[in-house]
Nucleic acid binder design. Structure first.
Length: 487
DNA sequence: TGAAATGTTGGGGCG
DNA sequence: ACGCCCCAACATTTC
């Protein structure tokens, strides 16, 4: 096999790493000294798609626009292709005489075999494939407990991770790129990733700035404004106390490693160590999901705890529809579901509340909620989403026990004490005082009348009553336990 | 990264 | 002064 000439181009295959800084694949490709061909492929095979839903598509559109521009400025170019990566990559390699192909792994377990096939194909075509593991701070295969098996409990996992966690210094962004002569491709508009008729994303740009520059701005703003109060405010959906980095991290506009370094540095200067640790533990949960995916396979289709294969889920399309559209009659749940629809995002605390209400009070299978989140969250990451739904459902690793059932009214009182969050998204109940706003069904008739609320007309009664829903969930759990054969 | 039911304790009102 | 009840406030257990 002939060695390709030094002038043969290198291919950089962008995926969920839409950034220039701390991008090992891009960095190595630049180091190779070869002219670069940069591609993003819109995968035709649903099994290997990088964007799981419509809201993520919206984000992808803008993130690709940003990446494309950033590459242009440095003399590069982003080529957009659609089809099956498995055919397109080898085809590009043949057509352009590409010597090396660089990519950063997505680390979704269902992609591993396909990526290996592509690497093998390239090798047999005389091209070199180089893949980098970048999705997580930790190295999933290497991190094992004393008996050589994977951790199944977050706290033990994270303690062990922190013990020797020392992510290397982030790589700089290359400032000059040598682009190979332009390759034919699609335009971003060809892909129709943004919605029209109706444009449900009209309000998204108020809140989000997709792209690498936006990601760094978001991080700096979080460090300056919110890190010092993170422990106090992180559970408050009525405040702006969380980082909101999830979509940026998910699309790889900023690396977890970069976040880690910036937070460490900021904490050292400002002394907010405990807040920093708490925040980094949240990044740790993201790592934990990838870790579980690596060791235990596809969490989207299989209960981590197989006892739940026998769980008697309910089929309730009407309640499910009320949940998705924010008309369950439980203000905290409805506020959160409407925030999701309007902004493509939901605060972490209320994610747990709406998930618990769907899975426990209503009794729907966690996969129904997972599917809705995949389609509506701009930060939708199928692996993290699946692990999180299983955590709430009780079937996951280090999950909340099934009998730990959130009471959305009690949660509202605790984390939205004045009702500001609910008022913002559920104007129907705006007239109620803080003590009634989270449970209008229990409000005195006089208060309801003064607030102009007719239950069942101007605002629904709960689709699943808190007390009976809870009891039914516990009963279902007992059924599962009774039918589970001890091993 | 719960909530509800149940148990315990201690202070105040009151006979 | 004392016992009794009530009921927060807190602690424990149960789901």
């Amino acid at each position: 096999m002939a060695t390709p000439p030094a002038t043969a181009p290198a291919l950089v295959w962008f995926r969920r790493d839409l950034r220039l800084a701390d991008n090992p694949a891009l960095y190595a490709a630049v180091q190779s000294g070869r002219p670069l061909i940069c591609v993003y492929i819109r995968e035709a095979d649903p099994a290997f798609q990088l964007s799981p839903g419509a809201a993520a598509d919206w984000w992808l559109h803008h993130s690709l626009a940003a990446l494309s521009q950033a590459l242009d400025v440095r003399g590069g170019h982003l080529t957009l292709l659609s089809g099956r990566s498995e055919s397109l990559i080898p085809e590009l390699v043949r057509r352009h005489g590409i010597a090396e192909v660089f990519w950063n792994r997505v680390d979704w377990p269902w992609m591993d075999a396909r990526d290996r096939r592509i690497a093998d194909m390239l090798k047999s075509n005389g091209a070199r494939a180089r893949a980098f593991r970048i999705a997580t701070l930790i190295d999933p295969p290497a991190l094992l407990n004393g008996s050589g098996t994977p951790y199944k409990v977050f706290s033990a996992f994270w303690r062990a991770a922190l013990k020797d966690l020392d992510p290397r210094t982030p790589l700089p962004a290359p400032d000059r790129l040598a682009a190979s002569p332009e390759t034919a491709g699609d335009t971003l508009d060809d892909w129709c990733l943004t919605p029209r008729n109706p444009d449900w994303a009209v309000r998204f740009p108020d809140r989000w700035a997709p792209g690498e520059a936006g990601a760094h701005k978001r991080l700096e703003r979080f460090l300056a404004d919110s890190l010092s109060d993170y422990r106090n405010h992180r559970d408050r959906p009525d405040r702006f106390g969380t980082s909101r980095l999830s979509p940026h991290l998910g699309w790889g506009e900023i690396s977890a490693r970069t976040v880690w370094h910036r937070v460490q540095l900021h904490a050292e200067r400002g002394g907010h160590f405990q807040d920093a640790d708490k925040f980094l533990a949240e990044i740790g949960w993201r790592d934990f999901a990838y870790y579980l995916g690596h060791h235990f396979g596809d969490l989207r289709h299989t209960n981590f705890n197989r006892d739940f294969d026998r769980f008697p889920w309910r089929d309730d399309p009407e309640a499910l529809a009320a949940w998705t559209t924010g008309r369950t009659g439980v203000p905290m749940v409805d506020a959160a579901m409407r925030e999701l629809w309007a902004t493509g995002w939901m605060h972490n605390r209320v994610r747990m509340i709406v998930a618990s209400y769907l899975v426990k009070h209503i009794g729907c299978h966690w996969r129904e909620g997972m599917a809705w989140f995949e389609d509506t969250l701009v930060d939708a990451d199928p692996l993290v989403n699946a692990a999180s739904w299983q955590w709430v459902a009780g079937s996951g690793a280090d999950a909340a026990p099934y009998f730990r059932i959130f009471n959305p009214a009690a949660q509202g009182k605790k984390f939205d004490p004045e009702g500001h969050y609910v008022r913002r998204w559920v104007p129907e109940v705006n007239g109620l005082a803080p003590r009634d706003i989270h449970a209008p069904w229990a409000a005195p008739a006089g208060e309801l009348a003064m607030a102009g609320i007719q239950l069942g007309t101007s605002y629904p009664r709960p689709v699943a009553d808190l007390k009976t829903g809870r009891e039914r969930a516990l009963e279902a759990y007992r059924t599962m336990k009774a039918e589970t054969v001890p091993d």
